[in-house]
Amino acid sequence: MKTETHIEQQGPVMARRSFLRYAGAGIAGVGLLTATSCVKDHRVMPNTGIDIGAKGDLAILNYAYALEQLEAAFYIQVAATPYSGITAAETALLTDIRDHEVAHREFFKAALGSNAIQALTPDFSSIDFSNRTKVLTAAQAFEDTGVSAYNGAGYLIKDATYLTLAGKIVSVEARHSAYMRNLITAGSFADNTIIDANGMYKAQTIPQY
């Protein structure tokens, strides 16, 4: 998986557009995708049939749709094959999260209509779904990436209705993340590894151009 090229763009001199790559790299970095193509070939391969074909806000919505598809697929798997030692409370709340992500996914699919990208088939083969720590760590990475991605893309949205909708979703992702973080380490729901001295989410303070 040649993701290193993208990951190195996380520094203070992030290139334009790189917030999207940053989020994408974050997901690829935890091994949730099979990166079968060379990173030099940024175009979607014709035989995959992917055609964004959308402009402006629709492109951002498709980006969100892609993220939500991955999250939904992940939690569907978590619910279908619970990790060993899962508690009743964890089962209940993880199932809730699954249903939230499915609702998000289906919302974007419906809202995008014929502009929607095709259904994605993520490869989670590198995750041991029987291992609590591994599942929760991956979940936390998903949620933090989601929050970061929505926060980072918000200012690009032109339509007030879509911006409000993104806001409606991002706070739910943040609630998921705080829960996941507390499950991994009690009291880490918003610790200084993710929140800066201004009390703001660290990964997405003012981007440096």
């Binding site: 995708l33 990166a35 993520p122």
Partner: peptide, 19 residues
């Protein structure tokens, strides 16, 4: 399936994106 490719495609499909 590579998410990074989708992101690239968004940039290609939407010339306004960079603006």
């Amino acid at each position: 399936m590579n998410l990074l490719n989708i992101i690239e495609e968004i940039n290609i499909a939407d010339p306004e994106f960079q603006d």
